[in-house]
Simulated assay, not measured.
Amino acid sequence: MAALASSHDDRKIAVVTGASSGIGAASARALAGDGFKVFCAARRIDRLTELADQIDGVAIACDVTDQDQVDALAAAVGPRCDVVLNNAGGAVGQDPIETADVADWERMYQINVAGTLRVTQALLGAVEAAHGAFIFITSTAAETAYEGGGGYCGVKSAERFMAGSLRLELVGRPIRVCEVSPGMVHTDEFSLVRFGGDQAKADAVYAGVAEPLVAADIAEAVRWIATLPEHVNIDRLVIRPRAQAANWKVARD
């Protein structure tokens, strides 16, 4: 734990998982800019500390696949939490089902699904106490299947249905359950991680696309949802760049 925010403040509280890069880091900045005290959670504490220092937030080293670390995150946050951004996740590999590595699929499930479940369970009481919101970052991979996407489409679909089931189970209680489903977002790490550090393969994903989304575009949607009145629920917001009509239909130069 590092970079403790200023004490005795009365800011609303947000928790962002996967905050060390990409959509998570951008969302932490956007929420802080709107007055939230942001608990930045991820595995890479060095990056988190730098971010938290910049936004007057709190850096918490947290691997969402580790129950003890998730429990420590919840303890650090305390009894009230206005927003939880379930963002930690990612894709591993893009092999066809015929040759896919089961370990890749298990890793994706542990982060995207089981990890999101752990965080949601650990912070649900605090969110209810604040009449707050859970925001799930899923993906347009949950909209439809595509070649090489069996594993990632599967885990993001599971996360989507987790959010949907949670919304049904909590109806009548003061908790919003919202989902943001991004399409093609160009970040420094998502595709690079997916392809095991192969920069050429990562670059090919965005080749010829003049204006893919960037992390700040999704962060603005997160900020908007987080600041809506508590009676307004955004069940699902699908965001794609103009150049992407579907997962498989992208305008390229």
Rank of each mutant, 00 (worst) to 15 (best):
V127L: 12
Y206G: 11
A200G: 00
V250F: 09
G172K: 08
V70R: 00
G149K: 10
A42K: 03
A251Y: 13
M108E: 05
V113I: 14
Q67Y: 04
C40L: 13
H131E: 12
E50A: 15
S191H: 11
T227K: 11
A61E: 07
I55Q: 02
T138E: 10
D46T: 10
L4P: 01
F161Y: 15
R80Q: 12
M108T: 12
L166E: 12
D235I: 09
A158P: 10
I45R: 11
D34L: 07
L123N: 12
G197M: 07
A52S: 15
A210H: 13
A74S: 07
E147Y: 13
R80G: 11
L85R: 03
L166M: 15
D188K: 11
V113H: 06
W248D: 15
A75H: 01
V209P: 03
A5Y: 02
S191R: 08
V185E: 08
L192G: 13
P229R: 06
A25C: 02
Y146A: 13
A215N: 06
K156D: 03
E211V: 13
A145F: 06
I225R: 09
V119P: 08
L51Y: 00
C81R: 00
D9A: 02
A129C: 10
D95N: 07
D63I: 11
G183Y: 06
D68M: 01
I55P: 00
R118Y: 09
L73P: 03
L4S: 10
E128F: 13
M1K: 03
D56M: 11
L168W: 07
R47N: 14
C178E: 15
G196Y: 10
Q67G: 00
L117I: 14
I135M: 11
A246D: 15
R176W: 14
V84T: 00
R194N: 08
A91R: 09
A122W: 07
V77N: 06
A219Q: 06
A100V: 08
V77K: 03
E211F: 10
I239T: 05
S6A: 10
A163K: 05
V102S: 05
I234W: 06
D101V: 10
